[in-house]
Design a protein around this nucleic acid. Structure first.
Length: 419
RNA sequence: GUGGCCAUAGCUCAAUGGUAGAGCUCCAGAUUGUGGUUCUGGUUGUUGCGGGUUCGAUCCCCGUUGGCCACCCCA
């Protein structure tokens, strides 16, 4: 039996080869995601991985179905594995919005799915940090989200040398569009041309823009000038005050493909340009209203950061530490008559919070010692009796083989103090 | 969804139109005994799957599945 295409197994380290996904690295990333989001006062939420298909077609239209991992369930319902978290969040907030004080600052670490042929940086499943702020709007809110994005990447060891955030706004593009074209029904089509600008040839772009009444030259000039709107200037100032100004620059070539963004949009990229976008987000002030059928109107903005590109980037930059079981004490049981006593102290040490392991079946002493070495244990602990018949622990620090004999109840303290 | 490349032991790879080997890992034993060394022995493959050509295919051909990469698309 093999796993489904585009899905991943996660193994503990050391890994059999470099193509296998590390459960330890994943946990490391999750830890930093959670820790950083919480440090910003965000609260964690979650929703079901399976939703009704309507939740996504309402937002994006029927054409989205081609991208979804959807099917008919046994109750004859059209369902889909969630391709993104935002509709679920909008639904959840829409349902109980009045029970939460504003602003709502929430984050989640969902596993997301899409039915697409896999390629570099893109599988059928991935994990994503989603952070959103609802019920309060304006540059300070957008800046808070961008700062969280930056600090999350910094917490993983990435620096200004590694990544930057490209900041843009649909308000800026709206003004540009409205100054040349009064037909607002064509505005979204215009955005989609802008979104693909870097991927198409100049001839194709010229042609598409001409059809909408624009010239490629004037669009390129607008991007090149990159003159911050008052809104973006306020965000830059806000981030500058935090000492994060160097991480951000205005770049109007970013507009993002999704239809529901209404204002500020941003994406994080690695500076070497080796990978896809690391993260992206923006303001979507009308989505909750759309999802709730007009019952709830609330402003919203947020971003998502996937684990696939992030892991590739961290690997490439050597920012992933080596992981092991983190054993602090390995209890050696060389005298079987002391097994019960040993188990008692293994239990005590574990309750004291020490990562403790031992050989469950009787094993020759050198084998036990080798297991301790393989586990990279900090200490071995061996029970023995002194002349007075008192039970003592022979603690050996494996780093330098220094030994000391201490009372069992002193082990935790010694390990903590010397490790 | 389209196209290109690839597919041999748990891992990294080798070999040949006549039914496959090395290193590492793993397991056992010995050695070492301030122990991570060394030695010996052992397990594992329908050579991704199905079909065809051939006296005979892992090696040639077709299909299929999976992987990698690009396109499409992009949370």
């Amino acid at each position: 039996m093999q796993r489904l295409p585009g899905f991943r197994d996660f193994y503990p380290e050391p890994l059999p080869n470099t193509d296998v996904w590390s459960a330890d690295a994943r946990q490391h990333i999750f830890d930093r995601w959670r820790k950083t989001a919480r440090s910003y006062g965000f609260r964690e939420y979650d929703g079901p991985p399976l939703e009704t298909l309507d939740l996504y077609t309402v937002k994006s239209g029927e054409e989205i179905v081609g991208q979804l991992y959807n099917f008919i369930d046994k109750g004859d319902r059209g369902v889909s594995l969630r391709p993104e978290m935002t509709p679920t969040l909008a639904r959840m907030v829409g349902t109980h919005e009045r029970n939460y004080k504003k602003p709502i600052k929430w984050f989640a670490l969902p596993q997301l799915f899409r039915y697409e042929k896999q390629q570099k940086g893109r599988l059928r499943e991935h994990f994503q940090l989603n952070a959103d702020i609802l019920g309060e709007a304006g540059p300070p809110v957008d800046a808070e989200l961008i700062a969280l994005l930056i600090d999350t990447l910094r917490s993983l060891g990435l620096t200004q040398e590694d990544f930057f955030v490209r900041l843009s706004s649909r308000h800026a593009w709206h003004e540009f569009f409205a100054s040349k074209c009064q037909d607002s029904s064509r505005e979204l089509a215009f955005y989609q041309v802008i979104d693909k600008l870097e991927r198409e040839t100049p001839e194709q772009n010229q042609e598409k823009l001409a059809a909408l009444g624009f010239s490629l030259a004037e669009v390129q000039q607008f991007i090149t000038e990159g003159k911050p709107t008052p809104e973006l200037a306020a965000i830059l100032e806000n981030l500058g005050a935090r000492g994060l100004g160097e991480y951000v620059r205005v770049d109007y070539s970013i507009i993002r493909g999704l239809a529901y963004y209404t204002g500020v949009v941003f994406e994080a990229f690695d500076r070497k340009g080796m990978f896809r976008a690391i993260a992206g987000g923006g303001r979507y002030d009308h989505l909750v209203e759309l999802i709730t059928g007009g019952k709830v109107k609330i402003t919203a903005a947020g971003f998502g950061m996937g684990d696939v590109v992030l892991t590739e980037l961290l690997k490439e930059r050597g920012k992933l530490p080596a992981f092991d079981a983190g054993v602090e004490v390995f209890c050696l049981i060389e005298d079987e008559s002391l097994r019960s006593q040993s188990l008692r102290w293994v239990q005590e040490w574990r309750e004291a919070g020490l990562v403790t392991d031992y050989a469950m079946a009787p094993l020759k002493s050198d084998k036990q010692f080798k297991r301790a070495l393989d586990a990279h244990a900090l200490f071995t602990a061996k029970l023995e009796k002194n002349e007075g018949g008192e039970l003592m622990i022979r603690l050996k620090r494996l780093q330098d083989r220094q030994e000391q004999v201490v009372k069992p109840e002193a082990v935790a303290g010694v390990v903590r103090a010397t490790s």
